[in-house]
Design a protein around this nucleic acid. Structure first.
Lengths: 210, 210
DNA sequence: TAGCTCTGTTCTGTATGCAATACTGCCGTC
DNA sequence: GACGGCAGTATTGCATACAGAACAGAGCTA
């Protein structure tokens, strides 16, 4: 028996398919076709679909299966502040002791972002790593679970976020300011800048709606 | 075909069994026995168990099925502030327009609580209704989903909360103060008292640990 | 007596089967 | 030409079946 349940892998795979649009917004999920395509039976596939529906990345229509929720600008406007507040909360609940050494590590990743920006590489992965690192010391697993569940929803809207190099540079600067504030033990500033970072991302997003 | 999937009912039923201890903390869930007891097959039962594991009310041990997480005082100490902040956030994000009429309705429920306190009835249901009403106008469905997922976890620890009549009366007073602040349009005070309400509940909980 | 191994059983994880609903296209009717 | 009913298919939701891992206990060894 595999040590990792099939449904975990399936959740990951289906998540990426929703994010990159291979499972299109508004489309229904055909369990038989998808199961065949993924080379598994319907049982673990359905388990994965149910898990994704619990997280909001799919919606379950009783009697009609699962479907990918359509894009909704209002939803993006609600998700960004939500993730912002959740991350800020996680940051505030990380004790100074646990924050030791974190600013340097964060700046290292910020350096990577700057390098990626120069070379024209994709920034969103590095950005994601930076935020994951920021939260890595938070001692509240339930809060982290909520954040982990919510971020994928947001990433659906994020595809075009880093398109503008101007915003990318600005974002990197905000990241450095957060690290600096943490180094000073100034948690209020750090979390305030963090929230602003997310909200600004939303503002830029609006300019390039699908 | 039933218009409501079996797994929804099962999630409800299993949740109550976890909360009232019929599924004991630390115990493994035997799928065959439970399915037989509930009169369903293992398939929808497993779907429900997976949903509950996603919410944290169960944990999945690969290869060993699902088990009810043991009680952990640290977990309670993290859940109460979490729900407090989430509710406060939901309150802050409810626009004044949508709050119209809410304070009166809240006070009506608070009256019920006071009456229940007099007659020695169970307060937790009414308390739950009060909080549900408080959040009912919040326009952010994702935040509400997170709150809805987290509260059951907390309720495991809450069983003995309303035991002390002193705390109950104090809590009712806090509820009235929140409604009054809302009536004045003083959202900061309302959310501050709300957070304190939750945190005090946690403090009383510690005195009566299982 | 403590620990190890072997064995039979139990249980989970996945696959498959089945019944009933939802969908699709066509035909008839107005 | 638009709309409503109807038959056939597709698809979901649930039940059952099966293979292999986890567990428990007896017997053996030191």
């Amino acid at each position: 028996m595999a040590r990792t349940p099939l449904r975990s892998d399936l959740i990951e795979e289906i998540t990426t398919r929703v994010l990159d649009g291979r499972l299109a917004a508004g489309a229904r999920v055909n369990e038989v076709h998808l199961a065949r395509e993924l080379g598994v039976s319907r049982t673990p596939l359905r388990e994965a679909l149910i898990g994704l529906a619990d997280r909001g990345l799919l919606v379950s229509a009783p009697g009609r299966g699962f479907l990918v929720p359509p894009f909704d600008p209002d939803e993006a406007r609600r998700l960004y502040p939500l993730v912002a507040e959740l991350e800020a909360l996680a940051l505030r609940w990380t004790s100074p002791l646990e924050l030791a050494g974190l600013p340097d590590a964060l700046d290292a990743v910020a350096d990577e972002m700057a390098a990626a920006l120069e070379s024209g590489a994709d920034l969103s992965d590095v950005d994601e790593r930076w935020h994951a690192l920021l939260l890595s010391r938070c001692p509240n697993p339930h809060l982290l679970r909520l954040i982990g569940q919510t971020k994928p929803l947001l990433k659906r809207y994020e595809s075009c976020y880093f398109g503008g190099a101007g915003r990318a540079g600005e974002s990197i600067g905000e990241h450095r300011r957060i690290a600096a504030a943490l180094r000073d033990g100034d948690l209020p500033t750090a979390s305030a800048v963090l929230v602003r970072n997310w909200v600004k991302a939303l503002a830029y997003l609006g300019k390039d709606e699908r």
